[in-house]
Simulated scan of single mutants.
Amino acid sequence: MKKRNWLLLAAALCAAPLSMAQTGNAKPVRIIVTFAAGGPVDFVARTIAGPMGRALERTVIVENKPGANGAIGASDVMRAEPDGNTLWLTSVGAAAINQSLYDKLPYDMQRDFSPVSLVVDNNEVFVVKAENPAQDATDLIARAKRGKEPLPIGSSGTGSIPHLALAQLESATGAQLLHVPYNGMAPALNDLMGGQVQGVFADVPAVMGHLKGGRLKALGMASQRRHPGLPEVKTFEEQGIRGMDTNNWYGLFVSAKTPAEVIDTLNKAVRQAVADPATHKRLADSGAEPKASTPQELSALLKADTQKWAQLIKARHIKVSQ
Rank of each mutant, 00 (worst) to 15 (best):
L7Q: 13
L13E: 11
A16N: 11
M20Q: 15
M20D: 10
A21E: 13
Q22W: 15
G24W: 14
I32C: 01
T34A: 03
T34G: 02
A37E: 08
R46M: 03
G50A: 12
A55F: 14
R58Y: 02
E63W: 13
P66H: 04
A68H: 12
G70N: 02
A80P: 12
D83E: 13
G84Y: 04
W88M: 13
A95K: 14
A95N: 05
N98G: 04
Y107S: 10
Q110S: 10
S114L: 13
V120F: 05
N123A: 12
E124C: 00
V127K: 08
V127H: 01
K129D: 15
K129P: 13
N132W: 09
D136W: 06
D136A: 13
D136P: 07
D139S: 14
L140A: 05
L140S: 06
L140R: 06
E149C: 12
L151R: 10
I153Q: 02
G157I: 03
H163P: 01
L164Q: 00
L166D: 00
Q168T: 01
A175H: 04
L178F: 06
P181K: 05
N183Q: 07
M185C: 00
L189N: 02
D191F: 04
M193T: 15
G194C: 09
V197R: 04
G199P: 01
D203F: 02
D203I: 00
K212N: 09
R215Y: 15
K217C: 09
L219Y: 03
L219Q: 02
M221V: 14
S223K: 07
G229M: 13
T246W: 00
N248M: 00
Y250L: 12
G251Y: 05
S255D: 13
T258G: 12
I263M: 13
L266P: 14
L266R: 14
V270M: 08
A273Q: 11
A273D: 10
A275V: 07
D276Y: 08
T279V: 12
A288T: 03
Q296G: 14
L301P: 06
A310C: 04
I318L: 01
